[in-house]
């Protein structure tokens, strides 16, 4: 549990080497950031350094999360060793859909892990006071505070699943290749938007903060073809908890299904719209924050 001293006092991340005019504090302090973006990057780098100080812990966490995500592969392989398809969806098709969902979910966990800490750490224990004293967006600060690089391997796992599925799928067009990153990123926004929306509840009802866990749990539905579910559930996953937009609608386009083209076309709008709306509401909800005073 002891941080290795090398990574804490090692070469600093800033652009200026120590001892230059900006180095007010000596000891490698890189001086004030030149831009807002530079400040965010430096904040993120600081958090990454704190996390990477415990190398062994970091590696174990990464491996553990990867293993848990890998259960799905064992399940899919064993299921499809007995059946050729589920309601007309083949193994490579489900693998591709699952891979897209895994990439978006993995990136979501890298960037938005802070949502899980919001209630307990910031609202009940009152660390929001500290966040509000700084001249930076509070939501961003909380997310960067919990920047979770351990889950990057899950993103790689998702990409590997997509790669594994490709030989069994019809070839993609150039436009499809170019749009793939956009769909994956907007999938992250759908998930982040929905959970940010539910995290606002923490400002209204004080609880120990596992409520968004239930909503997150429901996002597991995004890895299955929508049409295998009963109709009310399909509506729920499209209009109420729009998890079908995370991976299924875009993936259906790649898999040559035409029923959900509209869903695929509006997916980026849904992602951006939902996230922007949720962020705005979160900002409104923040006004109701009362410090616990301890």
């Amino acid at each position: 549990m002891r941080p290795s001293s090398r990574s804490v006092h090692g070469p600093s991340f800033g652009r200026r080497p120590a001892g230059q005019p900006g180095d007010t504090f000596g000891s490698g302090y890189p001086g004030p950031a030149r831009s807002r973006l530079g400040l965010w990057l430096r904040y993120a780098a600081m958090r990454a350094k704190v996390r990477l100080a415990y190398r062994g812990d970091f590696a174990l966490h990464a491996l553990g999360d990867l293993l848990v995500a890998g259960i799905a592969i064992v399940f899919l392989v064993s299921l499809f060793s007995h059946i050729p398809h589920i309601r007309g969806w083949s193994f490579p098709e489900i693998l591709f859909l699952w891979g897209m969902g895994e990439v978006s979910t993995g990136l979501f966990f890298v960037l938005f892990q802070g949502l899980w800490a919001l209630n307990q750490q910031y609202l009940l224990r009152g660390e929001m006071d500290r966040v509000l004293l700084r001249p930076l967006d509070p939501y961003g600060q909380i997310m960067v505070d919990h920047l979770n690089l351990e889950d990057l391997p899950i993103v790689l796992l998702g990409l590997a699943m997509i790669g594994w599925a490709l030989p069994g799928l019809p070839a993609f067009s150039l436009a499809q290749w170019l749009l793939l990153p956009l769909f994956l990123l907007c999938g992250v926004l759908v998930l982040a938007g929905t959970l940010t929306l539910f995290s606002c509840l923490g400002f209204l009802i004080h609880h120990r903060g596992t409520a968004i866990g239930v909503v997150y749990q429901a996002s597991a539905f995004n890895r299955y073809p929508l049409d295998i579910f009963p109709r009310p559930l399909q509506r729920l996953l499209t209009f109420v908890l729009p998890f079908a937009f995370i991976a299924f609608f875009p993936a259906s386009w790649y898999l040559g299904r035409t029923e959900w083209l509209l869903g695929a076309a509006v997916q980026p709008l849904v992602g951006v719209g939902l996230f922007v709306g949720a962020r705005w509401l979160w900002g409104r909800a923040l006004r109701r924050y009362r410090s616990p005073g301890s």
């Binding site: 174990l60 491996l63 553990g64 293993l67 259960i71 064992v74 399940f75």
Partner: peptide, 23 residues
């Protein structure tokens, strides 16, 4: 090991794969 986080995940995985609860 002074640290259980990785082991806890490993435990969850073993149980998930080999207990019958998920597969």
């Amino acid at each position: 090991l002074r640290n259980a986080a990785g082991l806890t995940h490993l435990k969850a995985t073993l149980i998930g794969v080999f207990s019958g609860s998920l597969i």
